[in-house]
Design a protein around this nucleic acid. Structure first.
Lengths: 219, 219
DNA sequence: GTAATTATTGACCGAAGGGTTAGCGGCGAC
DNA sequence: GTCGCCGCTAACCCTTCGGTCAATAATTAC
């Protein structure tokens, strides 16, 4: 915020402490996210931020505090509000939009997603604070799905084979499965269109276009 | 193997070098799997194995070599052969069996599965050697699914809506999604029966029993 | 019995890690 | 001007880490 506005002058005229703090955070984000907590030393962060190690400890009491700050910063893009887009679309289109949004987000933030998953699986210590926030995001998304599916079922727009909660859960599992396949198998382009077609084919019982029957996203 | 048989006497009469090597491996397995590579020190391993640190370096040249040995040891349970069970069952039952097997395995080896996933996501260095083996397992499983689905489609036992490869891919994604949900949401019991019912409901277009419509595995 | 080989150890080493401290330049307040 | 605070640094401290080494038990070989 003020960190950026203060940098009006084109070159390295940084003055305020916010500026160095930001530089440190950026360097730490990069290093922590790509190497992990224990494999990143404060000296490395200092070097990458072109700042003395002591300054980092002036901004952040401990390495862990810096790490938590990085976690929160990396988490920001995950808090998105797309309620306004909903207005005109019917439930089926909204669901499709929601699924596509998930897949696009994962594709465009793969490295950050990978980092968070690895972090939560690996380190229960930090995970505790993290779990709360991630779970909030996750259940928010799930609730939107449930709500939409429920309304779609009322209007007979989709199969009533499952309860909305079960359908949403299964859908989420499929999405998560696509996610991890994408993270593991490199060169797996995660084609959101094909995957969305596949998933909504299941959900709405639609007949698929011949191209989608091959499920590029899963082959 | 001989490690155990040599310990016939009730108390600590271990002799051969294999015995101490095994003790070290067991300690290292435990520590690496629960804390990770970088967070585990050789001194800790030595203490847990009740052995001097120097002895570890006598058995294993470096920490990394020990870690690789641990990886291979932890990977052993994953190589299972269940071709003989197939014999009498029809394709539909075989598929159900295969799905259930996946889920049971994940449930019963959750900590090891968690460790491998975290490891592969986190550390590309070791992941390279690991990826090969894991990918072999994975594509082996996938090929069995494809083969079975293909035969099931020929016999009209299941929907022909998708190509076998696409159906297998989607199925695997669903399974992986269940897997990660199970790893993240603690107290999520991963009910294999319910999940299998759900999944085969999708695959075979079967009507579900009322209890399964609620999809306990996903709620 | 003794020589060689195999297991095992305590003590040690240099490097790197997280964190501290004393101090320095600059700048606003008075 | 000078006092005091803020931003910042070089040098230092202590601990831990991966790894080595010389010495010593314990086995085996002959």
């Amino acid at each position: 915020m003020s960190a950026l506005s203060a940098r009006a002058g084109s070159v390295e005229v940084r003055g305020g402490s916010q500026d160095s703090r930001d530089e440190i955070l950026k360097a730490a984000m990069h290093l922590f996210a790509s190497r992990g907590f224990h494999e990143t030393s404060m000296s490395e962060v200092a070097r990458e931020a072109r700042v003395s190690k002591a300054l980092i400890f002036w901004h952040f009491k401990t390495k862990e505090e810096l790490f938590v700050a990085v976690l929160n910063r990396l988490l920001e893009p995950y808090f998105i509000d797309f309620s306004e887009e909903a207005g005109v679309l019917d439930e089926r289109a909204q669901l499709r939009k929601l699924v596509e949004f998930y897949l696009l987000f994962v594709r465009d933030n793969a490295s950050s997603v990978r980092f968070f998953i690895a972090q939560m699986l690996h380190d229960q210590h930090f995970a505790e604070g993290l779990n709360e926030q991630v779970l909030k995001l996750y259940s928010g998304y799930r609730n939107m799905l449930i709500e939409l599916i429920s309304r779609a079922q009322e209007k007979n727009l989709c199969s009533r084979q499952f309860t909305p909660a079960a359908a949403a859960g299964f859908l989420l599992s499929a999405l998560n499965g696509i996610l991890i396949e994408h993270l593991f198998v490199q060169n797996h382009p995660l084609d959101p269109e094909s995957a969305t077609a596949m998933v909504s084919g299941w959900l709405f019982g639609e007949d698929l276009k011949p191209a989608d029957r091959e499920g590029k996203a899963f082959a």
